[in-house]
Amino acid sequence: MPSPQPGAALQIGTALQIGTAPQPGVPNRYLHAVEAALAAAAAGRQAVSDAFDVLFIEATAGGWQGRAADDWWRQAADQRAATLGHLEACVTECRGLLAGQSELVGLDDPRARHPGPAQAVPLAPAGRR
């Protein structure tokens, strides 16, 4: 069996476990991948929320006032809400995927052959594009 591609992961939901006899377990790499995605989404939500907060604190310091500034403020607030909403949805979805997943799976289980969490990605230095 070829190793499952990311797209194929949908087929390896919790339903596969039902009715199967306990087998000597191996780590559920799929579970680890979802956990890593959840952690990344949660950390991202915090980091982006903080960055928007710092920006808004500076924006209230009166650096720029006027009609266009008010418009900008509304626009930025919308962007913040939409972005954090997306990250929140990502967190929720990851939590949904985790439900019912066990730590160990059988040797034949496709989740044992899942590629697992991505290697650590070097972060761009803060404040740089």
Partner: peptide, 17 residues
């Protein structure tokens, strides 16, 4: 900077999920 960094990390982690 924060958006780019988070997008990069998240893209790598959700690729297989």
């Amino acid at each position: 900077g924060s958006l780019q960094a988070q997008a990069q990390v998240l893209a790598a982690q959700v690729a297989a999920v």
